[in-house]
Design a protein around this nucleic acid. Structure first.
Length: 491
RNA sequence: CGGGGUAUAGCGCAGUCCGGUUAGCGCACCUGCUUUGGGAGCAGGGGGUCGUAAGUUCGAAUCUUACUACCCCGACCA
């Protein structure tokens, strides 16, 4: 058995880390805080990329690519933005190395100092808006709906695989609009798109809302976000969409002539999700047997394992297995037939469970004789034997069922770990002992938010968009409140 | 940046206090035979400048000093 996973109760962080590494997703690299995403893990990221990309294109967006390096001066243009990111930037100061005079290795050539330092992008608003100035002259150039798949670097003090690495992969959308209303509409379109993707593809239920003043993106007017509850009771921000107002347009002097001939600053948005989503996947669905992948994103949806003695048995099983594989592939399923002779069936079973493959078929001599096949589903670990002629039909409905079941299981977990709390004592007790989401009244002030955070390490994750108004009293200050907000400890 | 740890084979560790054979164990790896319906068994084998540098000593993984890297807990953050 996977003994390392029984550590879960002792140390969730360690369990998570081991799971990521042993399931072949990623490992720590030689560079502090950076990770190597391994082929299997990258396969999942590729699925996330391709499915999201389709959704972006369906909503009128196009891809482009902007430089990795940003001149330092660009950052100074938007005051809030520089304050938000200044503390965690990697900076390029030189462009050449040389041999050390004493012959012991190499050193930075002091003569090769850059006139102006280059910042390795922590996000691309500045370089993109500097470019948009030249692209936008008229209302006819709008809207500009661009997305970029890229890597960014944020020099975090503490890092964790997928959840917070110094370098990470993401997509960042940057759009420009002629009106405020249109930009706000875009911001909402995207947060809804993210909600759809995370819930319906990744099987992770999320809460959607806006961020408080102190939690919003540096340079934004409003930040919309989705938050998911992990199995250790902590919240993870899974995606954000920012309404930037005219802040960046003004900072980079991006104006257009509207229909009436008047010069106006453009309205903008930016939004993104990152490889952090893979961390969310692991933490939302993983169990003591390893990863549990939602079928829509699993690089391998069905694995077929032969059980045999000797080559003649294997040959008979293989011809059956390969026929099933072909049939399933005709219906769009991603299937692997694992006939490696170097590992025993039991080893393979455990290995694919660790990797989270949704469905496993086992075929042995008994099955050949009876015209059956054993079907095992990863999410519930149930096994059953079915008639071989029903395989395709059975699996097509099973794959849909697993996708739904994973989501429902996570939703149920979230519901069971969401509490309405009305007293400060209960708030503290709940955060400390139960974790999870707390729905509580808040007086709307940054002071109260700050005090709650200092005393409990819980922050306001989101202010729900569509929750019903409900008069109440702030759980901390006792002042009047119009609706509940969502508190949690977060990653 | 503060507090606490760790550094010995690919991974996980023992040995360090109290210096003394050829530095050991588990997993992994390689070979052979037997195995194959839930992580195989037996036998054999390979792999180490004990983080780096200097010092003490007849002798250093072990003692001293300096340096470096990494991990955990905070503050920071997608």
């Amino acid at each position: 058995m996977a003994d390392f996973l029984t550590k879960m109760e002792d140390n969730y962080a360690q369990w998570y880390n081991d799971l990521v590494i042993k399931a072949d997703l990623a490992e720590n690299s030689a560079v502090r805080g950076c990770m190597v995403i391994k082929p299997y893990g990258y396969g999942i990221w590729e699925k996330i990329q391709s499915e999201l990309d389709k959704l972006f294109k369906d909503t009128g967006h196009v891809n482009a690519y902007f430089p990795l390096f940003i001149p330092k001066s660009f950052f100074a243009r938007e005051a809030d933005h520089v304050e938000g990111f200044a503390k965690e930037c990697a900076v390029v100061t030189h462009y050449r190395l040389r041999n050390r005079p004493d012959g012991r290795g190499i050193e930075v050539d002091p003569d090769a100092k850059l006139e102006e330092e280059l910042i390795i992008r922590p996000t691309s608003e500045t370089i993109i808006w500097n470019t948009y100035r030249n692209w936008i002259q008229s209302y006819r150039d709008l809207p500009l709906l661009i997305n970029q798949w890229a890597n960014v670097v944020r020099w975090e003090m503490r890092t964790r695989l997928f959840l917070r690495t110094a370098e990470f992969l993401w997509q960042e959308g940057h759009t420009a609009h002629a009106s405020k209303e249109e930009a706000i509409e875009e911001t909402k379109t995207i947060i809804n798109l993210y909600t759809h993707f995370v819930q319906d593809y990744m099987g992770i239920p999320v809460l959607k809302g806006t961020k408080s003043e102190s939690e919003k993106f540096a340079g934004a007017i409003d930040t919309y976000a989705i938050e998911a509850l992990m199995q250790d009771g902590k919240s993870l921000q899974a995606g954000t969409s920012h309404f930037l107002g005219q802040n960046f347009a003004k900072a980079f002097d991006v104006q257009f002539t509207d229909k009436s001939g008047k010069l106006e600053y453009v309205w903008s948005t930016s939004w993104g999700v990152s490889t952090r989503l893979m961390g969310a996947l692991v933490m939302s669905h993983g169990d003591n047997h390893g990863l549990v992948l939602p079928p829509k994103l699993a690089p391998i949806q069905v694995v077929i394992v032969p059980i045999y003695k000797g080559n003649s048995q294997l040959d008979a099983i293989s011809s059956t297995a390969l026929k099933i594989k072909t049939d399933l592939e005709k219906h769009g399923l991603r299937v692997k037939y694992d006939d490696r002779d170097t590992h025993k069936p039991g080893f393979k079973f455990a290995e694919y469970e660790l990797k989270g493959v949704p469905i496993r078929l086992a075929i042995g001599p008994r099955d050949i004789e009876n015209q059956t096949v054993e079907v095992a589903r990863r999410d519930t670990m149930d096994k059953k034997t079915i008639n071989i002629n029903n395989t395709v039909e059975h699996l097509i409905s099973l794959i849909t069922d697993i996708q739904k079941n994973i989501f429902n299981k996570a939703l149920k977990f979230r519901e069971q770990n969401t509490y309405e709390v009305d007293s400060w004592d209960e708030f503290k007790e709940s955060i400390e002992n139960r974790g999870g989401f707390i729905l509580a009244h808040w007086d709307g002030t940054a002071e109260t938010e700050e005090k709650i955070k200092n005393e409990t390490r819980a922050s306001i994750r989101i202010i729900p968009l569509d929750s019903q108004a409900q008069k109440g009293k702030c759980v901390y200050s006792g002042k009047a409140s119009q609706k509940r907000v969502v508190f949690a400890r977060a990653y």
